[in-house]
Structures are given as structure tokens and as C-alpha cells.
Amino acid sequence: MVRFLVITTVSLNLMAQSSSPLLQKNCIDCHIQQQIPSELIYRRYLMRYSTHNEVRKRLLTYLKSPSKETSIMPSQFFLKFPQKEAMEMNESALVENIDAYLDYFDVRGKLVLP
């Protein structure tokens, strides 16, 4: 639990420091406020679907109609974090935000050779 909180805090702080203004305004501010671990969510989606295209599709479905059924997060996750409301954005704006989110957490930018 302590590890989870540390990870969440670290990633939220990092997000706050260097995310794009669009992502910052529409997603990160709220995620920081509610301490929702964005990178953990990204990794979980990536672990399930592997490609950004598939992850984008799944996240879009969720954002258009947020529910436990459209999410792949475990039920305990929703006990700890509130269920999100549907965002008042058109589909292209949602896709734009999702792409910024995926780019920001993209593992390609983080991997380095020893």
C-alpha cells in the first residue's frame, strides 16, 4: 500500500511537471487532486492490449461512457477512487487528449540501454 502511494505520488508529481497544457488542464489536474495513478492505469491497459491503437480505442470507449464494465481496472480500484463522470468533449477532442496521455507515458521514451 505504501509502495502504491509512493508510486502514485511520484508519477503525479512528474506529470504535473512536464505534461502538455492540454493534458494538464483536462486530465492531470483532476488526477492529482484525486490521487488517481495515471501511469498505473496506462501500464495496465498496455499490459492487456499491447498496442497504443488498441489502448486508444478502449480508453475512448471508457471516456465516452465511464463504467466498471467499460474499464479494465479491478473492482477494488473503484472502491478507492471515484467513478469518473462522462466528459463533455467531442470524440476528436477525447482522442487528442488520449494521444497526449499515451505519448506522455510511452515506454519507448523511458527505456534506456544499461
Binding site: I7, V10, S11, L14, E39, L40, Y49, S50, T51, N53, E54, V107, R108, K110, L111, V112, L113, P114
Partner: peptide
């Protein structure tokens, strides 16, 4: 691991590369 950089676990004499489901090169 959620650190800013992830050290790729390479070990000689092997070379390795990782690919996504659409067979796109990751690293």
C-alpha cells in the same frame, strides 16, 4: 517500476529486441 527511466535488461552475448502485438519495434 515507475521511475523516469527503465534500464533495458540486456545481457551479453545475447542481443534482444521487444515488439508490440502489431510487431512494431519498441526497444
Amino acid at each position: 517500476t515507475f521511475t523516469p527511466s527503465l534500464i533495458y535488461p540486456q545481457e551479453k552475448p545475447f542481443d534482444s529486441a521487444i515488439y508490440s502485438l502489431d510487431r512494431a519495434y519498441i526497444f
